[in-house]
């Protein structure tokens, strides 16, 4: 069910339940552990790379529905992208989340992540939505530095 604010869209609740890409798989090029000290939410994420593209995002974590759904959506959105596209996509997502509702999420680029649009109107929850994306960014930085 959808609530008044649109924060808990059915799509979000589905991703929270299904958690695409969940579970750590061997052979990641880099990994990152991110933690939100305010609520204790955490994500350990592995970036798997093959032929210069994102082959897989494997992750585990615990947290609120927003942070878990966002990690699931991240998996769906970025697998198959080049590393440059991954970096750009993360940047676009961060901008949209920090836009206080002014910058919509492009459905063509972001698929189910559109359902997270409402989060940008709740400053206290933006960190939840960004947690796994920050982990992906750190992992990407490590891959590029290597």
């Amino acid at each position: 069910m959808t609530t008044d604010t649109g924060l808990y869209q059915e799509l979000i609740l589905e991703h929270d339940r299904e958690r695409h890409g969940h579970g750590l798989r061997d052979g990641g090029a880099a990994e990152s552990h991110q933690r939100n000290p305010v609520c204790g939410d955490e994500v350990l994420l592995r970036l798997h790379v093959a032929d210069g593209r994102v082959a897989d995002i494997s992750w585990q974590g615990s947290g609120c529905a927003i942070s878990m759904a966002s990690a699931s959506v991240l998996h769906d959105v970025v697998v198959g992208l080049s590393l440059d596209e991954l970096g750009e996509r993360i940047e676009l997502f961060r901008e949209a989340m920090r836009s206080k509702g002014r910058q919509p999420i492009d459905e063509d680029l972001f698929g189910d992540a559109v359902a997270l649009s409402g989060v940008s109107k709740f400053p206290a929850r933006v960190k939840c939505a960004l947690l796994s994306w920050m982990a992906a960014e750190h992992a990407l930085d490590s891959v590029r530095a290597a």
């Binding site: 008044d4 604010t5 939410d41 615990s62 947290g63 609120c64 529905a65 927003i66 929850r125």
Partner: peptide
């Protein structure tokens, strides 16, 4: 098993 953040959000509504 609902996370406290989600509980707080739905109460805030």
């Amino acid at each position: 098993t609902v996370h406290a953040h989600d509980v707080g959000q739905l109460l805030d509504e």
